[in-house]
Design a binder for these strands. Structure first.
Lengths: 343, 343
DNA sequence: CGCCCAAAAGGTAGCGCTACCATTTTTTTG
DNA sequence: CAAAAAAATGGTAGCGCTACCTTTTGGGCG
């Protein structure tokens, strides 16, 4: 009666089955698809499990069934408020499903992303959510070998790996710049930090909108690869002013920069919007509370996360959404900081 | 030659071993403890694994070894900047180790926390990080049955479940109020939102500091259970002013509220700090950039997350830190918004 | 009342890996 | 150089669950 191996000491399904007077496989079915049991057995298994305090062993389940109920999520930053909204949507949606989330941080590096995708491979996730559309070729090929539904989020573009939920950063920036132009501003600066691909596309939107108005001037673009902070917004704005003192408005790639510009204006006694209009991007909550309130581009980040999870889970269950690419759009929130030039 | 069951189609360890000309167990050891192999076999297994593109099956590993390399993390919010810093520390530290993070959101509910702990049980995590010290009795008993190192973070207190990394919210608030008193402010209001246990302890620190100066007046306390926003800071401040128009300073339980107060002061043309001093809590980055710059209590949240992971992983490996409770302290960042009353 | 078919339940055999020894090879040492 | 010790390697038998198939049960119907 030698026992070769130390048992975990936890209650196993077999023990629940024995107490309930059913076979292990019936008990197993109870936990996965209770409707398959007759009401009497269902009852018996339920009470046996409760009595013994049974907790299923997920590793054994995953090994036997060859699948997991994990959705892997790759995002570039944990600090950026933008992603915390997306994450909230993702976690909220996952709680309503039987899936759990495995989160990893790429730190804005597509090589790190590639490495993390390989790590995910070992977990055999049931689905995957990745940020952006600029994966390496290697990443793409790893994703393809994973044979699971994949949603790319934050932006939309051609050639989805599988599904996409996002919006056009180009269009959003174009719209914001067009608004400033419509308000009568001619010399419009552009401030950018953390120049990830989405920010690059916003810059392109700015560029094209300015060119369309024959007002493009490369000297009014100030960017840095450094991560965004409010303080940095002030610094970049100072740079911009020293280069082109005649700017009348600035569009910032995010709201932190915009707030930094507002503070810098206050410090220099530049009145907003009379002497300087400001527009941000993302519409964080503080934009409406600022004095003056700050114009921004609102995007539905929470919904983006929520929808990504629900599209992925639907696809896992075989209900692939008819349209794999969802454009969630954006909304320009016009506020005091960009009100019309009164000449 | 009937095959009963569909194989996954992935490369297995056995296949790597065969190609390398070693036994499966030797190949297994290569992935867990390469030094145990002779250099020649190590080489052979490495190249075989590479050639076949072998990816280990984590579920099988977890089942066979009866343990995982997962650290469960429970935090109350994904939106609050405070936790994103902690999370960054946690994820950064985990990348240096062989552990991966399983994150769950309790939404400030200890019942939700209890439910999530039960979910974690099924995963048999190697370690656990939980926020705060106010778990339910049931949660505590679940944690004890998990037999893994556990770190409570964000604050310190008596009776740790296992280990703790944090600081005293009471002391921090007490220090901030003492500073305002030392600057000559007498009528000091308190603004609080999202009244979680840590915020309650800050309130207690305020109360005791004011009482010690014989200046306590319950009418100058304005709190709400609603989640924090910048806008809410303005609203609460307006409430405070309508109740006690003679307040000279406000201490806010977090920086978002403080920023809201600043904006509300700007809106009402109340000059800061001449007519109203402001102090916040957490020292988010924008506090130093604001005009005027805003006083706050700096806490080392990134380090808190990092240290929690390293203490837990050390404990898993049997190197339990000598002192299980680490007080990371705080630092009062005195800025323009609370400079001395010039009478 | 027997027959047929669907629903419910059970038996068996792995899923891919590692713990636990036993065995072989190498190194050390008197 | 043989014996003992240490290091490297291998064989076997599960870890706890579920896929796959077979058997049993129940119920409708001629």
């Amino acid at each position: 009666m030698e026992r070769k191996r130390a048992r975990s000491g936890e209650i196993r399904l077999t023990e629940v089955a024995k107490l309930a007077g059913v076979s292990p496989i019936t008990a197993s079915r109870f936990f996965r698809n209770p409707q398959a049991l007759s009401p009497s057995k269902r009852e018996r298994v339920a009470s046996a499990a409760k009595e013994l305090g049974y907790v299923p062993n997920l590793a054994a389940r995953a090994l036997a069934s060859q699948r997991t109920e994990v959705i892997g999520v790759l995002i570039p930053s944990l600090t950026n408020n933008v992603f915390s909204d997306v994450l909230r949507g993702i976690y909220d949606a996952s709680e309503g499903s039987r899936y759990s989330i495995q989160l990893a941080n790429t730190r804005y590096s597509i090589l790190q992303e590639e490495k993390l995708l390989r790590l995910f491979q070992a977990q055999k996730p049931a689905g995957l959510i990745v940020t952006g559309i600029d994966q390496t070729a290697e990443s793409r090929s790893v994703m393809e070998t994973m044979h699971c539904p994949i949603a790319q989020i934050m932006e939309i573009g051609p050639d989805p790996v599988d599904m996409m939920v996002g919006f056009s950063h180009y269009d959003a920036a174009f719209a914001a710049v067009s608004h400033l132009l419509a308000q009568g501003f001619r010399r419009i600066g552009f401030l950018g930090a953390q120049m990830d691909p989405r920010v690059q596309r916003r810059l392109q939107g700015y560029r094209d909108a300015m060119k369309a108005a024959s007002l493009f001037d490369p000297r009014t673009i100030v960017t840095t690869p450094v991560p965004t902070t409010v303080t940095l917004g002030g610094t970049l704005f100072a740079d911009l002013l020293s280069r082109t003192p005649d700017v009348e408005a600035v569009i910032c790639v995010n709201d932190d920069l915009a707030l930094g510009v507002l503070f810098e204006c206050q410090r220099r006694h530049i009145s907003v919007p009379e002497d300087m209009a400001i527009a941000g991007f993302n519409d964080l909550e503080f934009m409406a509370a600022a004095v003056p309130s700050l114009t921004s581009v609102r995007t539905n980040r929470y919904e983006m996360g929520r929808l990504a999870v629900s599209m992925v889970t639907a696809a896992i269950d075989g209900n692939r959404p008819p349209n794999p690419v969802v454009d969630l759009g954006f909304e320009l929130m016009v506020r005091q900081s960009s009100s019309a030039r009164s000449l």
